Amino acid sequence: MARMMESSEPVNINSFIVLDLETTGLPCFDKLTKITEISLLCLDRSQIMIAVKNKQLMPRVVQKLNLCVYPCRFINCGATEVSGLNNELLETCKTFGDVFDIILEMINMMPKPICMVAHNGNKFDFPILRSEIAHIKKNLPDDIYCADTLPAFKEFVYKNKPNEAEELDEAEQMADDSEPSAVEKTGDSEQEPKIVFLPDDINPTDNGKYLWGTDDWNDELIRVTELIENELLEEVNNINLDEIRKVNETTPKRRTNCLPSSQTGLKKKKINHSKDKINASKNLFSNKNSNAAKHSYKLKDCYEYLTEKKIINQHRADSDTHALLECIVKIGPQLLDWFDNNCKPFNNVTELWNIQKHK
């Protein structure tokens, strides 16, 4: 089927399908990632507006479909630990091809055009679902669109409290003033430095959403490395940079004796490397370094911020779709308008994998 032309004109979405998948692994490690569980919450746009008006988190009229499927592929141990699903549990379940007609019938029940929404859907749910459908040589109707809530949440979630960032900075400053430093001195001796733990909002195994090696991580690592290098230079007194540059640019000659430190302009001084490591970790993981680090946009954290509740049974597809729908209702009409303006045809999504390419 030919791809639909993507238009800059907004689409007047009539129905929404909140989607979440559990899979055999992460696409960044396994391009043949397959579905083990799929959950769909289908509802008319008007039902969201009624819930907003009545100050309800969950609309009353929601069509629900949750299916576990046998992936015909080994499920990664890490995925099993997260979702609780393994090959033995799923061996009596139908394959995705067997249940696709049920999924399609559910979708076709809703007034069109329809927009499927998923958190980090552009990089995870949509390409995987598109691959599964293409593998059985099927397609969804052309009036099915999709939109990723992750960029939308970055625009709306923490904007509800515009002064929160300033309050966070003030709270951190008070904590810094009241707490002892990582390395404390007692007389002339130094205590062992405190251990710096990785914060919860940086999780390299959370469905590929916050992985090591992202641009933000690399930029921050470079910045902190340069900072530590500058700190190390400041620890050494009376460095004659011109002399060092001259030596580096001159072809070395055989010498019988090394020059004494008095002639090189260098003065030896003990460097506290443990303190440098603490400073590196503190600068790399501190929320003070960038606005992006102040907030986590994982579904769990956005849900807790918006609803002041915790997700029950996180990483079960049905639980995650309920949590995402409650976030959508909490943000309200402005998010629905964002979906109208930013959705794209589902059939234009690039497949994550094509089984023919991997034979």
Score class of each variant (00 low, 15 high):
residue 278 I to D: 09
residue 259 L to G: 01
residue 262 S to G: 06
residue 231 E to F: 10
residue 243 E to K: 14
residue 229 E to W: 14
residue 239 I to H: 01
residue 277 K to P: 01
residue 234 E to P: 05
residue 272 N to E: 15
residue 266 L to G: 02
residue 223 R to A: 08
residue 275 K to Q: 09
residue 270 K to M: 10
residue 235 E to T: 10
residue 263 Q to V: 14
residue 223 R to V: 04
residue 259 L to A: 05
residue 260 P to F: 05
residue 261 S to D: 04
residue 271 I to N: 05
residue 229 E to F: 14
residue 261 S to M: 04
residue 226 E to H: 13
residue 223 R to S: 13
residue 253 K to I: 09
residue 226 E to F: 14
residue 220 E to A: 03
residue 258 C to R: 15
residue 244 I to V: 10
residue 256 T to V: 05
residue 225 T to S: 01
residue 254 R to Y: 15
residue 268 K to C: 04
residue 269 K to P: 05
residue 227 L to P: 03
residue 265 G to H: 02
residue 262 S to M: 09
residue 250 T to C: 08
residue 243 E to F: 15
residue 252 P to C: 09
residue 261 S to F: 10
residue 220 E to W: 00
residue 272 N to W: 03
residue 265 G to T: 03
residue 237 N to A: 06
residue 263 Q to D: 03
residue 274 S to N: 12
residue 238 N to K: 07
residue 245 R to S: 14
residue 235 E to W: 09
residue 269 K to I: 06
residue 272 N to V: 04
residue 261 S to E: 13
residue 248 N to S: 05
residue 222 I to T: 14
residue 247 V to F: 06
residue 277 K to Y: 00
residue 231 E to P: 06
residue 263 Q to T: 02
residue 258 C to F: 13
residue 258 C to S: 12
residue 266 L to P: 00
residue 264 T to I: 00
residue 237 N to D: 05
residue 224 V to P: 10
residue 242 D to V: 12
residue 224 V to Q: 04
residue 260 P to N: 01
residue 274 S to V: 03
residue 276 D to P: 08
residue 244 I to L: 12
residue 272 N to P: 12
residue 246 K to R: 11
residue 260 P to M: 03
residue 241 L to E: 03
residue 227 L to W: 02
residue 221 L to D: 14
residue 262 S to H: 14
residue 260 P to S: 04
residue 234 E to S: 04
residue 269 K to C: 10
residue 255 R to S: 11
residue 271 I to V: 15
residue 248 N to K: 07
residue 273 H to D: 07
residue 226 E to T: 09
residue 272 N to M: 05
residue 236 V to W: 02
residue 229 E to I: 11
residue 254 R to I: 12
residue 263 Q to G: 04
residue 240 N to T: 01
residue 237 N to R: 08
residue 236 V to Q: 06
residue 263 Q to S: 06
residue 263 Q to C: 02
residue 274 S to H: 01
residue 233 L to Y: 07
residue 243 E to C: 12
residue 250 T to K: 11
residue 222 I to W: 02
residue 221 L to W: 00
residue 259 L to Q: 08
residue 247 V to Q: 08
residue 275 K to W: 00
residue 272 N to R: 02
residue 245 R to Y: 12
residue 229 E to T: 06
residue 240 N to A: 04
residue 263 Q to W: 06
residue 243 E to N: 13
residue 238 N to G: 03
residue 258 C to E: 15
residue 227 L to G: 11
residue 275 K to D: 05
residue 248 N to G: 08
